[in-house]
Amino acid sequence: MKQIRILLVDDEIDFSAPLGKRLARRGMDVHTASSGQNALTELDNRPVDVILLDIKMAGMDGLRTLSEIKRTHPQIAVIMLTAHADTDMVLASMGLGACGYLMKPVNIDELVDKVREASRNDT
């Protein structure tokens, strides 16, 4: 099985750094970006299979970032992460092409399952 390449986009380093390490220990190739703009730059320089994208970020928020990702890289699966139970935001992200969402703090086993499923179902 090929190693799944993940881009983890979150402006909270205290969340993304440990999560990235946990995913790497499960055999995934994880890179991080601390903003939507940094994520778009990473995508221009590095192929990824799945993006884990925070909805609420300073600057370019997750919905705007998702919209841009889907415009420029429609084949990449995007899973939204949120600490806020906002149904409208979740529905908007699904309408923009996200393949799923998870609430923070994420259950690592559930996240790994979603990432594996998303990488198998590349659009």
Rank of each mutant, 00 (worst) to 15 (best):
V78M: 02
I76Y: 01
N45R: 15
V115Q: 01
V9P: 09
L66Q: 06
V50L: 03
S119F: 03
A17Q: 14
A92Y: 07
E12K: 14
D11S: 15
A17Y: 02
D109P: 06
K2H: 14
V78P: 00
K114Q: 14
V90D: 11
P105G: 13
I79F: 01
S93Q: 06
G97H: 00
K70P: 15
I55M: 08
A58M: 01
A33N: 04
R25D: 02
D44Q: 13
I69V: 15
Q3K: 14
A39H: 07
V50S: 05
Q3M: 10
R64F: 06
G62Q: 07
K21W: 11
Y101M: 09
I76V: 10
T72N: 15
A58T: 07
H84G: 04
L40G: 12
L102I: 04
D54T: 09
D109L: 08
S35E: 05
M28L: 14
G36A: 13
D54Y: 03
K21D: 14
I108D: 10
P47K: 12
D11M: 06
M103A: 15
R71V: 04
A118Y: 01
I13G: 04
A39W: 05
T41L: 09
R25W: 03
G62D: 01
V106I: 03
S93I: 02
M103Y: 14
V112G: 02
G97E: 02
V106S: 13
A83L: 11
L96C: 00
E117C: 13
L63T: 12
D54H: 06
S35W: 11
F15Q: 09
L7R: 01
G20A: 08
D29Y: 04
R5Y: 04
D14T: 05
A33P: 01
M80I: 11
R46L: 10
L102M: 13
P47H: 11
R120C: 00
T65G: 04
L19Y: 05
H84M: 11
E117Q: 14
V115C: 01
R64M: 10
D49E: 04
D86S: 02
R26A: 13
M28P: 01
S67T: 03
G59M: 01
V9A: 02
F15I: 09
L102H: 07
L23Y: 00
I55G: 05
T87L: 14
S35F: 13
G59C: 04
A98L: 03
L7A: 08
S16C: 00
G20L: 03
I4C: 00
H73Y: 12
R26N: 11
T87E: 14
D10G: 07
R22H: 12
